[in-house]
Design a binder for these strands. Structure first.
Lengths: 209, 209
DNA sequence: AGCAGAAATTGACGACCATCAAGAAAAAAG
DNA sequence: CTTTTTTCTTGATGGTCGTCAATTTCTGCT
């Protein structure tokens, strides 16, 4: 048997197992044939999790032409926004092969949240943290110079761990990605900052001045 | 008398007035003298809203030196993270002048959310939408070329309104900021895309091909 | 330890873009 | 309608950064 479907959704998988079980109980596992329609704008809103198989999302434009917006394969999901507030006004979901697909119904989920307020509070807390992290990243990425982005990142991180001497939690490659640059440029910027006397570095260990 | 304090917090001010009133009832308005400590790590967690005056946030580093992290003036607030989950472990809030400061206590707020599940659901819905918007923006900003960022933005927007012919909701200046570039570069990119035949533009009206 | 594969660095080069400044076009004000 | 102000465009220039390729350093594995 498959894992818990809710495990596949990042928003859920950090929840206490207890809460996850409660959500899992709401999930409708269903099998769909290839080309079968899973959802359309007239359906009630659902979170769609592809437990096994594949699906595609598409909209119809003003001329009635299909416009594929997303492809889902095993383990992917869509419709977080339909689960939380937004109505699905123009999107169709269709199985691209014989698939096992899990649906989590908005109304049932709302009912659960009303019955167990801790659940929505948990989700909210998690989300707020995420928003703050994303906000920081946007501010970083908005800085035109990589040098500034790096320094800002390091200072923020130093503040976070409340130390001026620390070990980077990311590899260069990932830090580069996070800062919207390349490992090469990042490397150069490190030596630049070191030359400027802003920091001292040995591998991934940083001393910030 | 002042406006509702909760109005100042973006997370709250889109809520139905009804919900806002309930939150407002929890708010403790208090007056602080210059240099008086509003919060420290031993206090229970609060959202801090400066209704009138000023305050500063600081942490103490390993040597006991103060490290100012944020300055609040009238209308600013801090501690969204303390209200929602994260504990305040090292931050002090101090009034920088005689101030009227509103505190929203975490425990009281939690109690309200448990009593009125709709409130946290509302907040959650709002947050999810925000996360999605921010996620899009991060993806955009991660594209190295302004040209790609612009095109991606336009395509996403077209998909959103489900039309290939639309009027931009932002002025050039703001769009430039959103895309992490300057109005000048943005302008050039528009003519470039137009030359390529990717779009046609007249002022802020776009036809996408 | 020693080897293999990955990760990080360095150099050279060219494209891209921010900046400054000036001009044109549109919007707002009178 | 005219004037004023704001917004947008265009040009020239220099710095920044991404790309490709080669080398060095690090890490995991047996």
């Amino acid at each position: 048997m498959a894992e818990l479907c809710v495990h596949l959704v990042p928003l859920f998988n950090a929840l206490p197992t207890n809460d996850q079980m409660q959500i899992e109980e709401l999930v409708h596992h269903q099998n769909y044939q290839k080309s079968e329609l899973v959802m359309d704008p007239t359906s009630s809103n659902n979170l769609v999790i592809v437990a096994h198989g594949g699906a595609r999302l598409y909209t119809l434009d003003e001329n009635g032409r299909e416009n594929v917006t997303q492809i889902l394969k095993t383990g992917d999901y869509a419709g977080e926004n339909w689960l939380f507030g937004e109505a699905n006004i123009n999107t169709y979901v269709e199985a691209t092969e014989n698939s096992e697909i899990c649906l989590l119904n908005r109304n049932e989920f709302l009912a659960l949240m009303k019955k167990k307020p801790e659940l929505s509070i948990q989700l909210l807390e998690q989300n707020i943290i995420k928003v703050r992290a994303m906000h920081r990243q946007i501010q970083l990425l908005s800085l035109p110079k990589v040098e500034d982005r790096l320094l800002s990142y390091l200072q923020t991180y130093a503040k976070q761990v409340n130390k001026n001497s620390f070990t980077l939690p990311l590899k260069m490659k990932d830090l580069a990605l996070y800062l919207g640059t390349t490992p090469e440029t990042l490397s150069r910027k490190f030596v630049l900052l070191e030359k400027q006397g802003t920091l001292k570095r040995k591998l991934r260990h940083i001393d910030l001045f």
